[in-house]
Every structure is written in structure tokens, then in C-alpha cells.
Amino acid sequence: MFRKDYLLRMMEEMTEAIGKVFTLKQQRKHTEALSELDELMRRQFGLNLSLLNSLPAEDVIEMFRFRGMIEVDNLQQAARLIEEEAYIYQEKAKVEGIDDQERMDAEDEAVIRLMRSLHFYLYALNHGANPKLLDAPERVEGVLGLTKEYELPARTERQLALYREQQGRYDQAENSWYRLLQLGAEFPVSYRDDVQAFYERLSPLTDEQLEQGGLPRNEVEEGLAELSRQEMNS
């Protein structure tokens, strides 16, 4: 009960703060809007947005570890604040009278924050966060729509693959895994074992389940066979 009340209080405070931010954005008071979000982050988590956007994502996630567990519901709330910060930069980029460099800088800052919030949403959902707390699945789809022209960081693509599998959207999960395999030559981390594990998790499913997920059994078997051929040729 205490935990539930604690989360509800945090949600109420966040909702109130985002309402203030919305008003400040309408008034084009972008600096004040950013300060409002930063202050909320400090009050709720003892962190600031600059730190959350500058450290490696894995280090930020570790900051939400308490008694050996990542507090994923807190993490998705932090993701929501970072997402809102991105929208402030988007609005800033639309202001008339700023020069092209300022506009491009604001657009870049928005994309960086959208990517960061997406990673944290996905990680939280993949590790048991309450999907109803912030309507996180809908927020994920919204951020994906806004960033569809950009290549996701490898660590985020991996979380997306796991998330699509969790949703039962196996064809989309496979697409993410193969994007990672294509990146393999550029990164020291090999995703081949992850892809094989993905197919092996699907193998025991029924034909109907696989069909519903957009990945028929013959494609699962072909995927495993292709990985075997690649291993033999390597």
C-alpha cells in the first residue's frame, strides 16, 4: 500500500508539473519550462536532466537500482520527463527569428532526448514496469513515430527487439535483430547468440501463435539454418 501511495503521489506531482510546462511552452518560455522539469527530477529522484542525458544509458539505469533491483516504474517516470524535455526543444526549434544553427541545435537536442526516453521506456517495460502507469506502450509507439527517420542506437534496437517479442510481434522483433546483425561489423558486440536464442524461444510455440506473430514456422527454421551456415563459414 505504501509503495502504491508513493507512486500515486509522484504521478500527481508529475502531472501538475507537466501541466505547468505545457503553459510555459505556449508562452514560449522554454528556459522556464526546462527549469520546471529539472526541478521535478531533482525533487523526485535527486538527479538532474543534464546528468541523465550525458551519462551512458546503462549508468543511468543503475542509478535507479535500490536493494539490488532496478525500480523500473521510477525509470519510466524519468523517461517521461526526458520525453517532455524533447518536446520543449522541438517547440524551441519552431520559434521565428532564431538563426539556422540555433534551430538545428534545438532539433538535435530533441532527437537525442527522444532516443534516450525511448531506451528507458523499453528497458522498463521489458523488466516488468506497469504499462498502465504512464500508458508507456502508447508513448513508445509515439516516440518511434517521431524518430523513424533515424537509426536507433544498437542498445535501444536490442531493447526494441525484446519488446516486440514480448508483444507477440515476432516479425518486427526479427527485423530489429537483423538490423543488429548488419551492424555487427561496426560494433565489438556480436548479436548472433541473441538472434539464435530468439529463434529457439519461438520454436516451441504453436503454428497458430507464430502465424499470429507474423513469423511462420518455416521462416523460424530458415532463420536458424542461416545462422548455422554463417557459423560454419566463419
Rank of each mutant, 00 (worst) to 15 (best):
L7C: 04
R9Q: 15
A17T: 15
I18L: 15
G19F: 11
G19C: 03
G19K: 15
K20G: 09
V21R: 14
T23A: 13
Q26Y: 02
Q27R: 14
K29H: 12
T31K: 14
T31L: 14
L37V: 10
L40P: 09
F45E: 01
G46H: 01
G46E: 04
L49Q: 02
S50V: 07
S54N: 13
L55E: 09
D59C: 01
I61W: 00
E62V: 02
F66Y: 07
F66A: 11
G68R: 09
M69F: 13
M69V: 14
I70T: 12
D73I: 02
N74S: 07
A78D: 12
A78T: 07
A79K: 05
E83G: 00
E84R: 06
E84L: 05
A86S: 13
I88N: 05
Y89N: 00
Y89E: 05
Q90M: 01
E91W: 06
K94D: 03
K94G: 00
V95E: 10
E96R: 12
E96H: 04
G97L: 09
I98L: 13
D100A: 14
D100F: 03
D105I: 06
V111R: 10
L114Y: 03
R116M: 04
L118I: 02
L118R: 01
H119C: 05
F120I: 03
Y121R: 04
A129Y: 04
K132G: 01
K132L: 05
K132I: 00
L133G: 10
L133V: 07
L134T: 05
L134Q: 03
L134E: 02
V140L: 09
E141S: 06
G142P: 00
V143W: 08
T147W: 03
T147I: 13
K148V: 07
E149P: 00
Y150L: 13
L152H: 02
E157I: 06
A161G: 03
L162A: 11
Y163R: 03
Q166R: 12
Y170R: 01
E174V: 04
N175M: 04
W177F: 15
Y178V: 05
R179K: 15
L180A: 06
L181W: 11
Q182V: 00
Q182E: 15
P188M: 11
D194C: 12
Q196D: 09
A197I: 02
A197K: 15
R201W: 11
L202I: 10
L202N: 05
S203W: 06
P204Y: 06
P204G: 02
L210S: 13
E211W: 08
V220K: 00
L224C: 05
R229T: 09
E231V: 08
E231R: 14
E231N: 09
